[in-house]
């Protein structure tokens, strides 16, 4: 079965992102396909590459990147949600003439159309953190 996930929860504050990650791992382990993870609302904070948790804690944003690298998952950060929350890749930082960017390279900035597209092209679209 083809799955996509919508993640609204930020890392660490709520369990939503964690639960979504475990769900992703479980469905891949069962042989299903994970088409896309769409990060919306505060979920866009999962896309930072500058997270520095204490050594005995998990780096939640990095863990998403690793998953994407291993299973070719399309990690999409909603551009409108991200820009207003200060999550930017190098292209957007340049466009808005800002002095730095903070988004992990495993993530893609794109529009809400990708959420709708995930719903159209997946057998299941599951939301975490609504």
């Amino acid at each position: 079965m083809i799955y996509s996930l919508a993640v609204y929860g930020p890392p660490y504050t709520y369990q939503a992102s964690d639960t979504a990650f475990h769900f992703a791992e479980a469905l891949l382990a069962k042989g299903h396909e994970l088409h896309r993870v769409f990060f919306y609302h505060d979920g866009v904070y999962n896309g930072t590459r500058l997270s520095v948790p204490p050594q005995d804690e998990i780096n939640i944003p990095a863990r998403w990147s690793e998953l994407a690298g291993k299973h070719e998952v399309d990690l999409v950060i909603c551009v409108a949600s991200a820009l207003r929350r200060g999550v930017l890749n190098a292209t957007e930082a340049e466009r808005y003439e800002l002095d730095s960017d903070n988004m992990g390279t495993a993530f893609n900035l794109s529009g809400l159309g990708q959420l709708i597209d995930a719903g159209i092209h997946s057998d299941r679209l599951i939301t975490f953190g609504a």
Partner: peptide, 12 residues
């Protein structure tokens, strides 16, 4: 942000 998603969805 939900309303934004509704408007986007309505295009497709």
């Amino acid at each position: 942000e939900g309303l934004d998603a509704v408007l986007m969805g309505s295009a497709f």
